[in-house]
Design a protein around this nucleic acid. Structure first.
Lengths: 132, 132
DNA sequence: TCAATTGCGTTATGCTATAACGTGTGCAAT
DNA sequence: ATTGCACACGTTATAGCATAACGCAATTGA
């Protein structure tokens, strides 16, 4: 799915995520958009829902946060499974793709006749810069 | 880490999880233990924290739920990374391990000098039985 | 024009998780 | 024996994450 026209709210939320250093929670996004007239969580969640659909934002399940896709302009859905390394110290996220991992996972899934809809790979730990 | 002696609360929570068909949320566990005297979420969360440490319970990040480890008696931490296929229709969870996936992920992590602490792999979709 | 769709704003609510306090118990060191 | 510590526990309160349900406005396409 490619992004059609973003609405004002979607653009605002996306902008906040793109300019952020790392992942943000929905409520943090809300706070950053109070000046633009945001008042309720739903305004954020609805925008996020679309941005996730468009493939320009990812949800980090293990930390209940959202991050802009690292591949601006492209549709991340076409890269296969997306994996994330999340630094628990500084919050930075590195996004990466590994086709061999995809292949193994999808092979297993196939052998079980399981129909995958959404796959999450998240590695929490400490990034190089933060390792003492 | 191997499980030492479980306390009463830990045993109760573990028992509920083992007898369950699929993953349960902390609050669902709480409800199931009201008759045994449970009154507050913390009683559940504290027990879960220990059970996770012991490696006899897994947390499913993408659905905020908990499930008993599929390898009774063993310490799941020794199996390498644990992956889950979660059926969004019936709720059943299949736990599996793939050393090649571990290897690729850990290889990438190593190349980034990233220190992994906890890795999550969860595939949400539809199981064979539920596929129409 | 009419109906369907989509986005939006608002209020209310529900679910998930932890902070902070105090109690009791077992155990080891003195 | 007493003191000090670690640990599990119980309780109350609160924080953080997410969605239900309502109604309105704008757009589109038959």
């Amino acid at each position: 799915m490619n992004a059609p026209q973003m609405t004002r709210n979607q653009a605002l939320v996306f902008d906040v995520l793109e300019k952020a250093e790392g992942p943000l929670s929905a409520y943090t996004i809300l706070d950053k958009l109070r000046d633009q007239g945001f008042r309720a969580p739903l305004q954020v969640y609805r925008a996020l829902e679309k941005l996730l659909e468009y493939g320009v934002v990812h949800r980090l399940e293990s930390i209940n946060s959202f991050v802009a896709c690292a591949h601006p302009g492209e549709d991340c859905h076409s890269h296969g499974i997306v994996a994330f390394a999340i630094c628990e110290s500084c919050g930075q996220v590195i996004e990466f793709h590994d086709h061999e991992v995809d292949h193994r996972l999808m092979g297993w899934v196939r052998s079980q006749k399981f129909k995958p809809a959404k796959t999450t790979i998240e590695i929490r730990g400490t990034c190089e810069a933060c390792a003492a």
